[in-house]
Deep mutational scan, measured.
Amino acid sequence: MKMAVISEHLGLSWAELARELQFSVEDINRIRVENPNSLLEQSVALLNLWVIREGQNANMENLYTALQSIDRGEIVNMLE
């Protein structure tokens, strides 16, 4: 549920979040190519990849820290 809210509000910031979460330029470009027409779909794809990559370590605290690092703390505030 929280992931959906984050995806809805990320907009163009999804790529900046991807870099903050240590995704490569290739990963970011692949997300763009696979989801060409929708920032929402790109955001969802990023968060899904992050959960798959991090497994047990994919917790909201880590995601909140990354969001705050890219000056998107207002998204965190909405969810708390």
Rank of each mutant, 00 (worst) to 15 (best):
M1V: 13
M3H: 08
V5H: 08
V5N: 03
V5W: 14
E8R: 12
E8Q: 14
E8C: 03
H9D: 01
G11S: 03
G11I: 02
G11H: 14
L12K: 10
S13H: 12
W14A: 02
W14Y: 01
A15I: 15
A15M: 12
E16K: 11
E16Q: 11
A18F: 01
R19F: 14
E20K: 06
E20H: 10
L21R: 00
L21D: 02
L21Q: 01
Q22C: 13
Q22A: 12
Q22W: 04
F23N: 00
S24P: 08
V25M: 12
V25N: 15
E26R: 11
E26G: 10
E26T: 14
D27W: 01
I28V: 11
I28E: 03
I28A: 04
N29S: 09
N29I: 10
N29E: 12
N29K: 14
R30F: 04
I31A: 01
R32C: 10
R32T: 10
R32I: 10
V33I: 13
V33G: 12
E34N: 10
E34A: 04
E34F: 09
E34H: 05
N35Q: 08
P36I: 05
P36Y: 04
N37C: 06
N37Q: 05
N37K: 14
S38D: 12
S38M: 06
L39P: 14
L39H: 05
L39V: 14
L40A: 11
L40T: 11
Q42V: 01
S43R: 01
V44H: 15
V44G: 14
A45S: 13
L46N: 01
L46D: 00
L47P: 03
L49G: 11
L49H: 08
L49A: 10
W50E: 01
W50T: 01
W50M: 02
W50P: 00
W50I: 01
V51Y: 13
V51F: 14
R53V: 01
R53W: 03
R53N: 06
E54W: 03
E54G: 10
E54Q: 10
E54P: 00
G55Q: 06
N57E: 15
N57M: 11
A58P: 15
A58K: 14
N59S: 14
M60Q: 03
M60V: 15
E61C: 15
N62F: 14
N62P: 07
N62M: 10
L63A: 02
L63G: 01
L63M: 13
T65C: 13
T65A: 13
T65H: 12
A66M: 06
L67W: 00
L67P: 01
L67F: 02
Q68A: 13
Q68P: 02
Q68W: 10
I70M: 03
I70A: 02
D71N: 13
D71P: 05
D71S: 08
R72F: 02
R72C: 10
R72D: 03
G73P: 08
G73Q: 10
E74Q: 05
V76F: 04
V76P: 08
N77P: 07
N77I: 09
M78L: 13
M78R: 14
M78Q: 12
M78G: 11
L79W: 04
L79M: 14
E80P: 14
E80C: 11
E80L: 06
